[in-house]
Every structure is written in structure tokens, then in C-alpha cells.
Amino acid sequence: MNEYLSQVNSGFFYLIVALALTFMTVMCVIFLVKSYRAGVKLGMDKKVLKKTITSSATFTLLPSISILLGVVALSGSLGVPFSWLRLSVIGALQYELNVAEIAAQSLGLPGLKVDMMDTGKFVTVALVMTIGILGGIFISIFFLKKYLNKVRSKPKKENTSGKPGFGAHATTAMFVGLCAAYIGAYIGQAIPRAGSDIMPLLVAIIAAIVMAVFEYFIQKKGKLVLENFSLAASMLIAMAAAVLINMVL
């Protein structure tokens, strides 16, 4: 068994993560109770409030399983406790993996490779992942009150063109650029020469094919429920394929 993985899966980390998540859950319960009571005081129907709780709980179940699959995918590189923490607080799978890769490269590794990781690199990667994602939190601490008050007091502008602004496309464009950088690098890496490696490109292609199948059923056949699993399942299938390809190659 890999010594690094045994260390990052120690019981002590499970305990720390459990304590942090307990704090977060208590925070959620306080917000829930306060809002429920405020709703009752404002004269809202208790049935509607209760229905909101039950429907939100059921609505969340499937996407939660998808996040759990993300924990499985991440746990092989960063251990279960840290993956559990990162996908439960602030993060999302896309962010975590990309940042872990960036941090690993900044430490001189070719990428997030389990067999090249040790606890020293792990703590640095963990710190980059943690601090790097706090932007939204700091913005909320300092600007949320001012921003929401401003939005509330401002009369709604009529959108005469009926078209969303560029902001709606900016995040998509940013992610297109992100994906292009990685896929382009995998294409370069696959060119036969010293140090070449075709595996990342093959795994990316398999993940894309599986995702295309999911997209077909979601977009063309209206199976919207699959949207909850498409990313995590595509990744896990492609990762399983990597094991088989490794045996063949």
C-alpha cells in the first residue's frame, strides 16, 4: 500500500475534518431555524415552509451522490479526509482538481501524480487549494451587505434587447480557455518522441465520449436526471479505462 496515501488517510485528519464540518452544519441549522421562524412571523404558510424543506432535501439527494463520487475520484490523489473537506466546504470538483494540478506543477511535479506525492508536497497543495478558493468568502464578508442593499434599492432596468449581457458568457469562455489549455497539452504530450505519453489524451477522449453519450440523453431524450451524474460518472469510467489501457500498453 502507498505510504503517502496511508499518511493522508490517517484517523487524525478524519477527526479534524469532522470537527470543521460539524461547525458548518451547526451554522446551516441556525440559519434554517432563524429563517423558518422569521417566515412564520411574516405570515408565511407553515405548509409551504415545510414543503420547501422536504423538496430541497429530495432535490439535493442525487447531486450529493455525484459530489460523493467526486470525493472518490479525488481521494486517490489527496486522501479521503481532505477530499471530503474540499468538496464539502466552498469547493467544487472542477476547481479542486485544477488547483491541485496547478499547485503540484508549482512544486516542480509534472502534475498531480500520486506516485510522486509526499506529505511535504501535500501540505503545500492543501494550502494553495484552501487559500486560493477564499476569494468569494472575502468578497461576501466585506461587500455582500452593501451589494444586496444596492441591488434592492435600485429600480430594475428593462433589458430592451432581451439578450443577456456578456457576463453570462464570460465564465463559459474562461472555462473553454481552461479546457483548451489542458487538452492542447495532452495532444502535445501524445506526439511520439522521448518522454511522450499518450495515456492522458486517451483518458480525456474516453471521458469526452462518455460525456457526449450523457449529453445526448440529457439534451435529445430529455433525461435531465442524468445531469447530476454526467461529470463524475464520465470521469470515473475514463479513470477505470486508464487501468485497462495501462494493462494493454
Binding site: 500500500m1 502507498n2 496515501l5 496511508s6 488517510n9 475520484a73 479525488l74 486517490g76 490523489s77 470538483l93 472542477q94 482538481l97 485544477n98 491541485a100 494540478e101 502534475g111 498531480l112 501524480k113 500520486v114 506516485d115 458568457h169 463559459t172 469562455a173 472555462f175 473553454v176 481552461l178 479546457c179 483548451a180 489542458y182 487538452i183 495532452y186 495515456m199 492522458p200 489524451l201 483518458v203 480525456a204 477522449i205 474516453i206 471521458a207 469526452a208 465520449i209 462518455v210 460525456m211 457526449a212 449529453e215 454526467s230 461529470l231 464520465s234 470521469m235 470515473l236 475514463a238 479513470m239 477505470a240 486508464a242 487501468v243 489501457i245 495501462n246
Partner: peptide, 28 residues
């Protein structure tokens, strides 16, 4: 943590960007 699964976890990033790439490239 079995060694046989090492290629799977070493390629978690390509798996992510293959799947995400298809989604975003198809969108734009």
C-alpha cells in the same frame, strides 16, 4: 490504494478536462 489503480488516479485531471471540454466546447 491498490497499486493497480494508480493509472486511474494519476489520470483524474485528464478525465476531468476531457468530460468538461466536451461540455464547454460543444456549448461554445
Amino acid at each position: 490504494q491498490n497499486e493497480a489503480l494508480l493509472p486511474a488516479f494519476n489520470n483524474v485531471v485528464p478525465a476531468l478536462f476531457g468530460a468538461l471540454g466536451l461540455k464547454y466546447f460543444a456549448k461554445s
